[in-house]
Amino acid sequence: MFEEAQYLAPVTRRADGGVEVELSRSHPGFADEVYRERRNRIAGLAMDHRRGDPIPEVEYTDEEHEVWRLVSRELSASHAEYAVADYLDGAARLKLPTERIPQLEEVSEALHPLTGFRYLPAAGLVPLRDFYGSLADSYFHSTQYIRHHSVPLYTPEPDVVHEVIGHANMLASDRFAALYRVAGEAARRVESREALEFVSKVFWFTLEFGVMHEGGALKAYGAGILSSYGEIREFRTVDIRDLDLVAMGTMQYDITHYQDILYAAQSMTQLEDVVGTFWADCTDDSIAALSASAKTP
Rank of each mutant, 00 (worst) to 15 (best):
G210D: 06
G210F: 01
G210P: 10
V211T: 11
V211I: 15
M212G: 03
M212V: 14
H213G: 03
H213P: 01
H213S: 11
H213C: 05
E214F: 06
E214L: 07
E214W: 04
E214T: 12
E214D: 09
E214Q: 14
E214R: 10
G215K: 04
G216M: 06
A217N: 07
A217E: 15
A217D: 14
A217H: 13
A217F: 03
A217Q: 13
L218W: 02
L218I: 05
L218T: 04
L218H: 06
K219R: 15
K219F: 02
K219T: 11
K219H: 10
A220S: 10
A220T: 05
Y221Q: 14
Y221M: 08
Y221R: 14
G222K: 01
G222T: 03
G222A: 01
A223K: 14
A223Y: 10
G224A: 07
G224V: 11
G224H: 05
G224S: 07
I225H: 11
I225S: 12
I225F: 09
L226G: 07
L226R: 08
S227T: 13
S227F: 08
S228L: 05
S228H: 10
S228M: 05
S228E: 07
S228W: 05
S228V: 04
S228T: 09
S228P: 06
Y229P: 03
Y229V: 15
Y229L: 09
Y229H: 13
G230D: 13
G230M: 06
E231V: 03
E231M: 00
E231Q: 10
E231R: 04
I232Y: 12
I232C: 07
R233Y: 08
R233M: 09
E234G: 07
E234V: 09
F235C: 02
R236W: 00
R236S: 09
R236A: 04
T237K: 15
T237F: 07
V238Q: 01
V238R: 11
V238C: 04
D239I: 02
D239N: 14
D239R: 14
I240N: 05
I240R: 03
I240L: 06
R241T: 04
D242H: 13
D242Y: 04
D242F: 04
L243I: 14
L243R: 10
L243Y: 07
L243G: 10
D244Y: 02
D244T: 05
